[in-house]
Amino acid sequence: MSAVLNKRNIIILFVLVSLVFPLITTNTYLIHVMTLAFIWMIGVYGLNLLAGYTGYLSLAHAGFFAIGAYGLGILTVKAHMSFWLAFVLSLLITGLLGLIVGLIALRSKEHFFAIYTLCLGYIIYLVIDKWESLTEGVRGLIGIPAPQGFGPIKFETEKSHYYLVLFFLLLVILVMYRIVHSLSGRSFIAIRNSEDLALTIGISTARNKLTVFVLSTLFAGLSGALYASFVRFIGPDIGNTAVIFDMLTYLIVGGIGTLTGPLIGTLLVIWLSQLLQDFQQYRMLIFGPLLTLLVIFYPRGIVGGVTDIYRKRMAKKEKQLAGKKDSYIQSDLGAKNQVKEG
């Protein structure tokens, strides 16, 4: 069964199910929740590229998510720019800020990097909250337009919006898949594995780390811009540190440093919290222990856990096969010897 659960099959299954999902349900609320889940996944993929594949845990990504969202919001609502121009510009702004921040933040490592970016994320939140002339502060930005349509395609219904977000998500997954399976991806993993070793085999760690950082903030910004255009209203809370810990939970539950982890983790946690909605604030009582147990027993999340079990089973099988082969050869030899003796 684990053989069926490899990453290609999971992604194919996900694509099929997500394509037909709006056709089998007429409940727009479910489509709404699913669209939001897709939007989060894009951000979680960004976090995964940096924290999972390169080993740098950034806690500033809620901030970059908010920068993407506010970029789009301000450019459309206040500067009256056309939607797609504002969309592209908001991504560029996020990437540029990511570059500046990365240059400084990446001088630190490990816990220090996490703490530095945590503070930075909080500063971004504070700037958004207090800079009222630009961001409208706690009142938030209202009336962000839905994406402009292309010819006959319009993005005004929940369904059409769902497919737009799904398009971007699949694009992100494709990009992630290709990066992780390329020589660049191998360099990133080498950095995560041991930065010293990566340096001695000639990998420019500084440049690679900066590239990953900018790319992952771009993903966060894309996620934020899509969020703003979908929800149409944004407040400073989307940049709050609580958001980054939500994203981190999705990533850890699914499997940090795995390609399908963000998909599985985000879907699972979001639907689980929907199901537990009746319990209100008590649902954390269920979530907390579950998450703790998961981290203790499966530090690489559900996907990592399944892969490990699968590999162990394969190794066992291989050993058994090898054993059988040996005994076969021995009996074969035995037979030959018998012939000789005969």
């Binding site: 390329s182 020589l183 191998r186 085999i201």
Partner: peptide, 28 residues
């Protein structure tokens, strides 16, 4: 310092990375 969860071959492949030129755009 080897990466235990990867195969021996995968561990060694990256060693030749410094003699290659492809970048992120090539990857995407």
């Amino acid at each position: 310092n080897l990466f235990d969860q990867a195969t021996v071959l995968d561990n060694v492949i990256v060693g030749h990375r410094l003699r290659t030129k492809s970048n992120l755009f090539d990857a995407i």
